[in-house]
Each structure stands twice: as C-alpha cells, then as structure tokens.
C-alpha cells in the first residue's frame, strides 16, 4: 500500500451560507499528515464549526477542494467517507436508554452492508474502542445516565469504532473537568501515535496548545494565520482574534494563556 505524506487536505476552501451574510469561511488551507494534530482556534462565530462541517463533507464548498490521500473527497462513496473520516460532536441529545456498548457500536455502520447488523467482530472493535477511552466499567451503563464529560468520551469511542484515519472533533473537550481533560489529551496523543490525523476545534487556547502541534487561528470566517504552534500562537495573534488583552506565560516549558 502506498503511504501518503499528506493524508487530509483542505485547499483554498470558500463557503457562504444561503442567508447571505457574507463569507462564512474563505480561503482556508490545511494539510494534515498521519500522526498530526491540528487545532482550529477562534472566538465564537469565527467559522470553526463551519470549517469542520466542510471537512467532513456535510457542507459542500463553493470553491476549493477537500482531498483524502490525494483524491478529492467527492470521489469517495458515502460509506467510504465514513470509513475514513470520524466526527465527534460537541454534544448530543439522546432520548433513549441505549447502553454505552450499543451506542458505540453504531460507529461500525460505515463498515456494515445495508442489511447487516453489527456482528461479533464489530462488537470486539466496539469493546476495544470503549477500552481505549477508559470507559470499560461503563460498558452496560445507560448513556442517558452519563455525565457530560463521560458522554464526550463515549462519543469519541464511537468515532474510534469507525476505525478512520482522520478524526474531526468539534469542541470535544468543552464539557470535561480537569482530570478528564488530562485523560482526553493522553488519548489524543496516543491516537496520533498510532498514526491518526486529528483536527479539532476549541475555544480554549490552553487545550489547543497542549493537544496540537499545528494551529489555525480564525477570525470572522478568515484564517488569520496558520502554522506550527510555537510560531503562530503569539500574544499579538491571540489579542487580534479575541480582541482582548492577553498575556502568554511560560510555565515548565509550556505556554499558558492569561487574560485580564
């Protein structure tokens, strides 16, 4: 099998919503290599979520192209895209008492034929995915009984059960307490170590700094600047996108963002 240097790529993406409020995102460029984690940072309404929806094919760009391993995303079938891109939403409304295992097993859908149900192998992969996020104890727990943080881990597990090369995470750390944030970071780094490419949005610069090596700063639908974390994440850039005085402090070799 050919190894692609670039796994996932957004090339000069432009997109407007029908409501006619100007560009929702314009001229977005991004490349992700296997094992790379990139964070999209920006204030509310800066186009982070729109960008993620474009990346997973939910929205079609007006101009530009999304490529997976060198091929345009449109050239893949619906099932093939589900086998390549996993999506972790910020939260999910669940009204029924699914068990964690049942819920995560739905991530196997892209690998099932239309009339199939998850079989033994699918359930093994499901159990492994739940183990990966440290939720083994909750295998038969009802998802409606989980805390916000636990649910986010379960949603991540569902995307892992999809066995995709790329993971797209929308504010996936927003509900986590400090302990779980640490756990989540470790999981992300381990997944990157296994060769997965991860694109996450966040409005917490600290989390992005700890998680990613690449960062894209967005403001009002435009990419302000993108590149390696240590080059891009400067006091000036952060003050520009958040429009508030910010101090960057280095503690123990890690940058921490302070606002006053």
């Amino acid at each position: 099998m050919k190894v692609h240097e670039v796994r996932f790529e957004l090339r000069r993406i432009n997109f407007t919503y029908d409501t006619g409020e100007g560009l929702a995102v314009s001229d977005v460029n991004l490349t992700l290599q296997p094992g790379q984690i990139a964070a999209v940072l920006g204030p509310n309404g800066s186009g982070k979520t729109t960008m993620l929806k474009l990346a997973n094919g939910r929205l079609k760009p007006e101009a530009g192209e999304i490529r997976y391993e060198g091929r345009p995303l449109q050239s893949y079938s619906r099932r093939e895209i589900g086998q390549r891109l996993g999506f972790v939403p910020q939260q999910e409304k669940i009204s029924f008492d699914y068990t964690v295992q049942e819920y995560v097993s739905m991530g196997r859908t892209p690998w099932l034929k239309p009339l199939d149900v998850p079989g033994r192998e699918d359930m093994e992969i499901t159990t492994e995915a739940i183990h990966e996020v440290g939720m083994d104890r909750y295998l038969n727990q009802k998802v409606t009984k989980l805390s916000g943080g636990q649910l986010q881990l379960v949603l991540l597990a569902r995307a892992l059960a999809q066995q995709t090369g790329v993971l797209l995470l929308d504010e996936a750390s927003s509900q986590l307490d400090l302990g779980n944030k640490r756990l989540f970071l470790d999981i992300l780094h381990r997944l990157a170590g296994q060769g997965k490419s991860i694109l996450l949005t966040s409005h917490e610069p600290d989390f992005a700094i700890a998680a990613a090596t690449k960062v894209i700063l967005m403001k009002r639908g435009k990419v302000l600047v993108a590149g390696p974390m240590d080059k891009v994440l400067t006091k000036d850039n952060l003050e520009t996108i958040y429009e508030t005085p910010i101090e960057l402090v280095e503690i123990g070799g890690r940058k921490v963002v302070l606002w006053t």
Binding site: K53, N56, R58, R78, R79, I81, G82, Q83, L85, G86, F87, P89, E92, M106, G107, T109, P110, R158, A159, Q162
Partner: peptide, 8 residues
Amino acid sequence: ETAHSISV
C-alpha cells in the same frame, strides 16, 4: 450531523 458522519 452524527448520522451523516457514519454514512447514513
């Protein structure tokens, strides 16, 4: 959104 992301 989720259903779409798992190829439904």
